[in-house]
């Protein structure tokens, strides 16, 4: 655990300070972007600000390429409906 804390990059620490009130465990967990499709305005605003081109809309569906996402959080800030959020990454592998 202690090691993991040391290698956390800057943006994670930044995000931690932003969200620590909600969830203290946040810091040590790897986060994954989640999208609430039901309340999405389908405006594609998040696509336009994503610096890594991790997001794209096809039809009216938002596709998130989690491997490309560098978790900068810009899309979360820019989303007018507030439907992009961080969730704890489920153990896939």
């Amino acid at each position: 655990m202690a090691n993991k804390r040391l290698i956390l990059p800057f943006y994670e620490i930044f995000l931690y300070y932003q969200t620590q009130t909600q969830d203290n465990l946040y810091f040590l967990k790897v986060k994954k972007l989640s999208h609430d499709r039901k309340n999405c305005l389908e405006c594609a605003g998040c696509v336009g600000v994503c610096p890594t081109m991790a997001l794209d809309m096809f039809g009216l569906d938002l596709q998130i390429n989690h491997d490309k996402c560098n978790r900068c959080g810009i899309c979360v800030r820019a989303c007018p409906a507030g439907v992009l959020n961080w969730i704890e990454k489920p153990d896939e592998k």
Binding site: V49, I74, V76, R77, C79, P80, A81, G82, V83
Partner: peptide, 12 residues
């Protein structure tokens, strides 16, 4: 302008 941090969504 895109807010620096986010408490309330723009929609709200």
């Amino acid at each position: 302008l895109i807010p620096k941090s986010k408490d309330l969504s723009i929609q709200d």
